[in-house]
Amino acid sequence: MNSVATRIKDLLGPEIAGPGFAFLAVMLFFGFASPQFLSEATFGSVAFQLPELGLLTLAMLLPVLTGGLNLAITFTANIAGLTVAWVLQANGGVDAGIAWFALGCVLAVAVGAATGVVMGLVIAYTRAHPILVSLSMMIFVRGLGEFLTRGGDVSGFPAFLQPIGHGSILGFPIPLLIFIACVLLWHVLLTRMKLGFNTYMIGSNIEAARYSGVNTRKVIVLVYTLSGAMCAVAGIIMLARFNSVRVGHGESYLLITVLACFLGGVNPFGGFGRVIPVFVALVVLQLLSSGLNLMGANQHLATAVWGILLIAVMILRWLAAQLMILNRRKG
């Protein structure tokens, strides 16, 4: 029994305490406040809405763990979605075959990865701040997308895309299954692979990692490449969900991905954080949004509450750190 408990503790880490407490608080509050909250419809809605935000959060997670940031995630996702859309439009539109969709997905992932490669190379070799580099990429990708689409939507896709965005397997939404697979992939990468270990080292102290023999430039480029590739997966899911692509889709998700990372116990300066607590934090944010909607609150209020929650998380973290310092001094 102790070994099982130890394994669970090692899997989740101490970071699970914050999102776990928030999950219980949200469930109890809205469970009492709204009779419809604890229903199949609510959890079904969360299951369909979670994946696109979740995938973008995974794209944000790796750069944050290195002490960086990727502000271009939403526009990278949209330019990747536009890549798939253009391949389909150029080869029959609504009559395009699955092979063309598969080719579009491959090209979309390549486009997403390419944006990450460029950012990673600039950050690694010029030591420019990740915020400035990713902001520049965000502006470039947004401008390029608006130029190519003239600010409009691209729509008219084959019917077989509908199940990818809205279908289910054994009662589980297909987008959710894709997201869970990506969560497991990221978990394995960070806990079982050398790249994950080096990512934590760079986030903790990049100079110490360099002196330890870690090729920090290579790791940073790989981290941003994987971040861009994950953005592309999110873009493909968004295309299937909305049955259209627009450069501005999911613009509001950017800051929410940062909130999810911090609520999930990820250190904003890098070096510490796990995937599973971030997954729980995403569930909390979606349940919070659904609960407010059931109570008749405007979606903008939910966004405001997310902002307040981020401030509260920062304050609670500071208080926890001060409490630990006091306990050490007493000990």
Rank of each mutant, 00 (worst) to 15 (best):
V283I: 12
L71H: 08
F172Y: 07
I164P: 00
L326E: 12
V247P: 09
G116Q: 02
T42P: 02
A128K: 00
G273T: 06
A209Y: 07
A302M: 06
M314Y: 08
A232Q: 10
I123Y: 01
H300P: 07
V313W: 02
F32H: 15
G68E: 14
A102H: 05
I178W: 00
V258D: 11
P158S: 00
A96I: 03
M27L: 09
R329D: 04
V305M: 08
F262G: 07
M314I: 14
L259W: 07
R192D: 08
F179G: 08
F242P: 02
G165W: 02
F279N: 06
L69A: 15
S252T: 14
F172N: 05
A41H: 03
I206K: 11
R150F: 15
R192L: 00
F32P: 04
V84G: 04
P19K: 09
H129W: 00
D10H: 12
G291H: 09
A229S: 09
V154F: 09
V278Y: 12
S290G: 10
D10E: 10
Y211M: 15
L170A: 11
I178Q: 01
W86N: 13
P268D: 13
M119N: 06
L135G: 00
I220W: 14
G167Q: 03
I139N: 13
F23N: 06
I276P: 00
C182E: 12
L53Q: 03
A102F: 08
M201Q: 14
M230N: 11
P277N: 01
G116D: 04
V4G: 07
A320G: 15
T42Q: 13
L189A: 00
L310A: 04
I180N: 01
H129K: 01
Y125Q: 03
I325Y: 12
V87S: 07
E251P: 15
A159F: 09
L184N: 00
V245M: 01
T115R: 01
R127E: 14
I98N: 12
N70L: 12
L263I: 15
P158F: 14
I308G: 12
V154S: 01
G296C: 05
N267S: 14
S252I: 06
R328P: 14
S155W: 05
G143E: 10
A159R: 10
S212V: 06
A297M: 14
G273A: 09
Q286N: 13
V258I: 15
L259Q: 07
L148R: 00
S289E: 10
A312T: 13
T57K: 11
A22P: 13
Y211C: 13
A47N: 01
L288N: 11
L301G: 04
I123L: 05
L121T: 00
V245H: 01
Y224C: 03
P35H: 07
R127W: 12
G167E: 03
N2S: 12
I276W: 07
G104C: 02
G273N: 06
N70A: 08
I123E: 03
Q89I: 02
F279P: 10
L263A: 09
N205P: 01
Y224A: 09
C261V: 07
S45W: 10
T191K: 14
N91G: 08
F242Q: 04
V188K: 01
A90S: 15
T74M: 09
V305C: 09
F179Q: 06
L309R: 02
G270F: 02
